[in-house]
Design a binder for these strands. Structure first.
Lengths: 342, 342
DNA sequence: TGGCATAGTGTATACGCTTACTTTATTCCA
DNA sequence: TGGAATAAAGTAAGCGTATACACTATGCCA
């Protein structure tokens, strides 16, 4: 059917193994033969069959991506395209292909991962999120299958290569920044509490609040999905407090969009009535009005480093797990201002 | 190393071929043997090796997704996660895996596709976009490789299975809708003119304008990337006209975000000063303020049907190409109003 | 000139699975 | 009871590539 190594060998008048060595650019083959074989390959339009190669090789030249449930609203977050861009950049450099696994339920995703791993479809996996008590991560560890995580693993973080921002520090510094603007009542709008990133940022927030000697109030802490319905309630509750916050630290730009929209409907002006500071600096964050002040967490680099780390794991399995910390940077736009004197 | 069909065969005391037939659920195997073999499989934790299977089988149980250049801003459009959700739903149902191909340049993408196809990594491909004179599509046709397209192929549309909205009609109806609100000066903010969808919608817009006996003015037509920088200029130009439009038909919600933001900065109020109507109804479109009136093009279904069509192509290659039209629906929110009397 | 490195190629087997073909066991009817 | 028909399982040959090992030719030195 399609042209194989044997066809090339016949045409170039060499043995199949020689052709194989030419493909692998084996130094034991003379330049002359290499040229001859390459001509034959071009002439026939030969392309190696990856499946055969994988079988003989025990390597697939593919890496798997594990995304959150596609039913989850988070799936639509522009974070993912950007992180994938980072991953695919290095994957391309090293001629690795990308395999995707998603599903509507957690079970579906798990099942997909098992198929990837056991079926030897990929050489390693990048987890695009880190949640508390993740079944998939446990499974991968049990199987001793190479993987890296974007975010901090909930447990065994020392033994798992992971790429993360220092979310604790970031949240702390950002809270301090808000405090430096004169805000004393700062709310925290978080997302899914099962995500480690939520926890880290909340802790950083708490640290800054306590360091500054401000009261840490539970009613200032709110966790919601970013969608309008949920967010609306949360924001209303916050504003209905006797002493409503004058600034909000929001865990994600998309969530900020929702918050912004709700505030707008309620007739609250940002940043005059309330300041807003969020994380991620996704491409859209400059498109809202007012445009979002946001912490650039360098999503591209998170992806790039995660894939790079994974390829290292694959190539030298005995290498030690490491933690890569990607720097963050505040991008000031229009949603933060000094607290207004009343 | 890992457990193979032979190990299972040995344990179950049958021949490897029998095990293989049990996996394929071949009716020629008695129920008794099936049970015995399945027990052995469970006991050993057996999972078939996909590569070996692909090789023997000449089928991979995987489909490839071709996305636009990741350098392209369009890559970040929430359209893609949603379309992928549709694809992955049916892929999961039929136990197909998803392969992704992206790259920073068109060449990289092309190369990736060639590797997918020639390397037999996938059984078929879904093109997630349709552009004018697309090299990849030509290549796939030449190779007679199964593929489907989301959007309308620029040429040979009859011979390529594709899933599309009736974008011409949609744009026409939406323009008519704006006209019915009393608007006579309607601008069109398009995106990349290399995309077939842009062309179709522009033509629909033109049709409606002409049908209504309104003047079709080139200066009302603008094409920009959705990012702030570009969009800003375009919008400013439109508003600087002697007779600026009172309504804008925008090709994409994300672009609308940019437009909205620019208008805001310019002190133009939506929808009082100018109405805005866009396409796609991505999840974010309700999160802007005012929330976007948008045409729901049923992105999920586009993905679902594209994958379904592809699987049909793969399973019966002689089947004829077909066109699937996914219905659209206007979602009225807050960005359109009757033209204000002056 | 014989022997021995060394470079360059070829041979043959394995990777794990599918499947056409064969063989064996069972049933059933004349 | 013999033999055809059928059901069930086994044998073995690939699928396309990689690679350990074997082999040949050449050059070099003693």
């Amino acid at each position: 059917m399609s042209v194989t190594i044997k066809d090339v060998a016949k045409l170039a008048d060499v043995a199949p193994s020689t052709v194989s060595r030419v493909i692998a650019n084996n130094p034991r083959i003379s330049e002359k033969t290499k040229r001859k074989v390459k001509e034959a390959m071009d002439y026939l339009g030969y392309h190696p069959n990856f499946n055969a190669r994988s079988l003989a090789n025990r390597s697939t030249q593919a890496i798997g991506l594990v995304m959150p449930s596609s039913a989850d609203k988070a799936f639509q977050n522009p974070f993912f395209p950007e992180v994938i861009r980072g991953i695919s950049t290095i994957a391309h450099e090293q001629e690795y292909a990308l395999y995707m696994s998603t599903g509507n339920t957690e079970d579906e995703i798990f099942e997909g991962v098992v198929r990837m791993v056991q079926g030897r479809r990929v050489d390693g996996i990048v987890m695009l999120y880190s949640r508390v008590d993740d079944r998939i991560m446990c499974y991968l560890q049990e199987q001793k299958f190479p993987f890296t995580v974007i975010g901090k693993p909930f447990k065994n973080a020392e033994s798992i290569t992971h790429i993360d921002n220092d979310n604790f520090k970031a949240a702390q510094e950002m809270t301090e920044y808000l405090i430096s603007l004169g805000h004393e009542r700062i709310g925290f709008v978080g997302g899914n509490l099962n995500l480690v990133v939520t926890i880290d940022r909340l802790l950083g927030y708490e640290k800054a609040i306590r360091n500054a000697g401000l009261p840490y109030k539970d009613e200032y802490i709110v966790h919601e999905e970013f969608l309008k319905e949920g967010g609306q309630e949360a924001v209303k509750e916050l504003l209905a407090l006797k002493e409503p916050p004058s600034a909000l630290l929001v865990i994600d730009d998309v969530m900020s969009f929702g918050v912004l929209s709700t505030l707008n409907e309620l007739g609250v002006t940002v940043p005059d009535d309330i300041s807003l500071l969020s994380f991620n600096n996704v491409m859209l964050s400059e498109l809202s009005s007012p445009s979002l002040s946001s912490v650039d967490i360098n999503i591209f680099k998170l992806g790039y480093e995660a894939a790079k780390g994974l390829l290292e794991c694959i190539q030298c399995p005995e290498k030690e797990a490491k933690r890569v910390v990607v720097p963050f940077q505040l991008i000031e736009r229009q949603t933060c201002s000094k607290v207004s004197e009343k």
